[in-house]
Amino acid sequence: MDSIISTPLFGIALSLLAFDIGCIVYKKAKLPIFNPIIVSTSIIILFLLKFDISIEDYNKGADFISFLLGPATIVLAVPLYKQLHLLKANSVAIISGITVGCITSIVSVAALSNIMGLDSIIGLSVVPKAITTPIGIELSKQIGGIPALTVVTIILVGNIGYAIAPFVCRLFGIKDKVAVGVSIGTSSHALGTTRAMELGEVEGAMSGLSIGLAGIFTVLLVPIVLKLINFI
């Protein structure tokens, strides 16, 4: 048994099996809170704790799946290409919306960190919460955060966005498909984008675009915004 656990095959098999179970649960429950990411993550954590398996052993295989995050994000360019005319027609509004969303995300983290009296390293770890994981990890390292905490935060934000994004859009009367997609992609990255794709092709395409631009804008804006508000 130990020899199997110590091989990359274990982490890959456990991840795929847990996600498959998560998909089945989601189809049965039909509730956002039971989306495959939440369910599969919970299953993996409980399994590792139950059988006292180290995260290092699990990551020998899981890291292969993590590596695919980059290519998977790039694939989102396909639906965007199909909606290229909408991008051209709304380019100013889209770029402005993403920029404002990124600044709001950064400032809100800094403000809440100060209000709650959190250690600055925790605040810095949470700053990349709204961008995709590969970019968020590197940004966290650059600004002195804790990458592991950043990953947890990104996952939580993505799942929250997946669960409540459509409700929030309805609550504030956001009906334009482009606006819905941009808001979801900017605030809750790839997990939110999966929800946007369920809403429609336009929403999914705009959300996919927002993932990449929000990541780039956040990397560029974080040092400037945090210095302006004296957070670093």
Rank of each mutant, 00 (worst) to 15 (best):
G145K: 11
T194W: 06
L68R: 01
S105P: 02
I95P: 03
V126F: 12
S54T: 12
N230Q: 03
C169I: 07
I135G: 10
D63L: 15
V219D: 05
F34K: 15
K175F: 03
G185D: 05
F34E: 15
L14Q: 06
L209A: 05
P8E: 05
L87W: 00
S188M: 09
L221A: 11
D2F: 09
K60N: 08
I12V: 05
I131V: 11
I65S: 01
L118V: 08
I137V: 13
L84S: 08
F47N: 13
L228R: 11
G101K: 04
E138F: 01
G11Q: 01
I74C: 04
V202Q: 11
I5W: 00
I24Q: 13
S105M: 12
I211Q: 07
D63Y: 10
V151C: 09
V126T: 10
A89V: 00
T41S: 15
M116Q: 12
C102G: 09
I122V: 08
G101V: 05
I55G: 15
S66F: 09
I121V: 14
G145L: 08
G101I: 02
A111K: 12
L118Q: 07
A110H: 05
L16W: 00
K88N: 02
I95T: 11
F64G: 06
I143C: 05
T104L: 14
E56A: 14
G185V: 04
K129S: 15
E201R: 14
G161Y: 00
I131S: 12
V182P: 02
V168C: 11
A13N: 07
K227Y: 02
I232M: 06
V107L: 13
I211R: 11
I232E: 04
I232T: 04
T104G: 15
I33T: 15
G204S: 05
A165S: 12
G117N: 04
K88I: 01
G192Q: 13
G97Q: 02
T41G: 15
P223H: 04
I137K: 09
N90P: 00
F231M: 06
V127D: 06
L149H: 03
T133G: 15
F10T: 01
I74F: 04
K177N: 10
I38T: 14
T104Q: 07
H189Y: 06
Y58M: 08
G212P: 10
T153H: 03
G70T: 03
L124H: 11
Y58C: 06
V202M: 12
S183P: 00
P223E: 14
P134V: 05
N35E: 14
V152M: 10
V151A: 13
Y162V: 03
